[in-house]
Nucleic acid binder design. Structure first.
Length: 451
RNA sequence: GGUCCGGUGGCAGAGUGGCUCAUGCAGCGGAUUGCAAAUCCGUUUACGGGGGUUCAAUUCCCUCCCGGACCUCCA
């Protein structure tokens, strides 16, 4: 992609703003990655995909992009799950991290440039906490270190809240060691059966928010271009990160633009295990093609609530079939091109308007199906810009080891057809259909594909 | 209760102060086919309710209704 200026919605300003790189030669961004205690669900997937699309777009526009996505491998949920599974914490986090990587790969989500783990940055975290204490923004109490919310005048700016109201609405009992009800934990003491590290404040482990501040500083510096994550992280997580980093480095601006993707609903409701509408990426991948899943998620703008449904997945597969069909006439004969239609780059530049970009792809597919090779080339390149078309059409339609049997049956059917024995011909076709194989009699002979 | 986001045709989902028109899926009619499939051509259906601003509002403002997110560790 080229030339067009990228605009992004900044959560802090509540509006779409032109993206101006702090360093046009090197764009830096940080997205919150998973806490590794279980398979990721499709809501997590949407967040990872949003980052993926943004990173792919940035890479097409800037010479160098550094994308950092952390792994939270120390957390009370992890401790609880390990105990429940009667499994060591390390074994749980390692296994879950592997599963996560596998899911991302299956979904064609590009790996980040740096994937730091919290447990490998305890020193960075402790240094930052010390600096916060030195700057008068944090205090130690009963083995804890807490961030002092009243010490930071701008607390609440990012998420648009004021601390007073937060206290009034607080639904959690305030711990006695907190000077102010809004204060949050930077460091907390660990028992012998909990993961812990020696520190000036006793053996303990970091709170959730501090790791992202420490790791983004470590790999991207005091100020960087974009920080993102799911909308549910806006408060308190990102607000607290902001407070930590800006109080640690008062001269910095931390993240320039904040990007948050909207939540995903299933059957019109938020996913939850109790409602039984909770799906892991694994479960969906077992039933659906990854590119179809990707497409289904891209059909909605990342900032609008998306209702994830079987119907949506089915439709997405149908459209991908059509797109691949549009490419199939040119199978191996399409070169990569940077010359994407302006309407496509314009849509993507406008706050990653993927639904609009897909509309352009529909138009290109129409042209490609009429034999327009240039349109097919552009369709393929546009799709690849969105992480689609990771396979070739023949593999897309015929990814099975039963090809010989299928082709033998097609031979039989063609023989029957020549003899005008349509009963036999139709019976064979129906049999194949039951196996998920659809036949198409084209002027160049019979072709087959999997549903 | 507080803060924020949203309500567009059967469904999904863009967009805009006025232009013939998003787009896709589904539906309907037709071409093609032995019949299908695929493809092509044509086609029906809309901007939550009520006020206001305006020559003109789905688009701006107010209000009501409805849905969703967040409100101390959920992407």
């Amino acid at each position: 992609m080229s030339k067009l200026n990228l605009s992004l919605y900044d959560s802090r300003q509540h509006k779409v703003v032109p993206f101006v790189a702090l360093d046009p030669l090197h764009v830096r961004l940080y997205f919150c990655g998973p806490t590794v205690y279980d398979f990721l669900h499709i809501g997590n997937l949407r967040a990872m995909l949003t980052a993926d699309i943004l990173v792919r777009t940035l890479r097409s526009l800037y010479p160098k992009v550094t994308y950092v996505r952390n792994i939270t491998d120390v957390d009370d949920k992890i401790n609880a799950r390990a105990k429940l599974n009667n499994e060591s914490i390390q074994s749980l986090t390692q296994r879950t991290t592997q599963d996560f990587h596998q899911d991302m790969q299956s979904m064609y989500i590009l790996p980040p440039d740096v994937e730091p783990r919290a447990t490998e940055h305890i020193n960075d975290i402790q240094q930052m906490i010390s600096q916060l204490i030195e700057n008068g923004h944090a205090y130690a109490a009963e083995g804890h270190v807490l961030f002092s919310v009243p010490s930071y005048k701008d607390y609440g700016h990012l998420s648009g809240r004021n601390p007073e109201e937060l206290i009034a609405g607080a639904r959690v009992e305030v711990a006695t060691y907190k000077k102010h009800p809004g204060d949050f934990v930077l460091w907390k003491p660990s028992n012998d059966d909990e993961p812990g590290w020696d520190s000036p404040w006793g053996k303990g482990r970091p709170g959730w928010h501090i790791e992202c501040s420490a790791m983004s500083y470590r790999y991207l510096g005091e100020s960087f271009d974009i920080h993102g994550g799911g909308h549910d992280l806006l408060f308190p997580h990102h607000e607290n990160e902001c407070a930590q980093s800006l109080c640690c480095f008062p001269e910095s601006q931390f993240a320039n633009i904040w990007v948050h993707n909207a939540m995903l609903l299933v059957d019109g409701e938020k996913m939850s295990k109790s409602l039984g509408n909770f799906f892991t990426i694994r479960e969906i991948l077992a039933q659906h093609n990854p590119e179809a899943i990707r497409f289904a998620l891209l059909q909605a703008h990342y900032r609008s609530v998306l209702n994830f449904s079987q119907a949506g997945l089915k439709e997405a597969k149908q459209i991908m079939d059509r797109f691949y069909r549009a490419l199939s006439a040119f199978e191996s004969d399409l070169d990569q091109t940077d010359d994407l239609p302006e309407a496509f780059t314009e849509a993507m530049s406008d706050d990653l308007n993927t639904p609009k970009a897909l509309m352009v792809m529909h138009q290109l597919a129409d042209q490609a199906l009429k034999g327009n090779k240039e349109a097919a080339t552009q369709l393929k390149s546009a799709g690849q810009q969105l992480g689609l078309f990771n396979t070739i059409p023949s593999k897309w339609f015929q990814n099975t080891d039963k090809a010989q049997q299928i082709e033998a049956l097609i031979e039989q059917r063609n023989t029957a057809k020549k003899a005008r024995d349509f009963t036999t011909a139709d019976r064979i076709r129906d049999e194949l259909k039951d196996q998920g194989i659809v036949l198409e009699d084209s002027p160049n002979g019979t072709i087959w594909r999997q549903i």
